[in-house]
Amino acid sequence: MSESADASLDQQKQLMLLMTQHQRRIFGYIHTLVPRRADAEDILQETSLVIVEKFSEFKPGTDFVAWACQIAWWRVRAARQKFARSKVVFDDDVLDSVAHTAATMHAEVSDRHEALARCLQRLHPRDRELLLTRYEPGARVEEAAERSGRSLEAAYKALARLRKLLFDCVTNQLATTTP
């Protein structure tokens, strides 16, 4: 195998490793800017393609998540041009500000992700099931309500209560572990 072929294989392996390690964080960033999950997933797919195309420009040793999120940001901007007006949640200037804030919080959001797993374990199984059913790919609150035997309105209320509970639990966990 030639030297250039070896280098290309190494680069592919490195890309795969980085994407496997950080895809969740990139998705989290996109989902923050594009709250509709299916749209966020589409943009993640488009972003991944661009990352593959441009990976030779990435400088090893620098922040991969920041680099990838910069690409994601431009995909988000491009996607907004295609969205129907009803799908756009944030005004342009607000989107800019939120993107800026989110870009500074990658590490914290990652810590919160880890803490959330512990907090989820503390929930009553019935509550955890409702919550995770709601977040299944393609699922909506109606389905979670049906499967948990709740009315739709009761499911909305329960989900709001559980998110508050988890949000506070995560915040408390980080407060107690942060020196």
Binding site: G28, H31, V98, P137
Partner: peptide, 16 residues
């Protein structure tokens, strides 16, 4: 908002 949205993304991830 970023914390809240991050939690939603994490829940998508854990559910998946």
């Amino acid at each position: 908002y970023v914390r809240f949205a991050g939690m939603n993304a994490s829940l998508c991830d854990y559910s998946s």
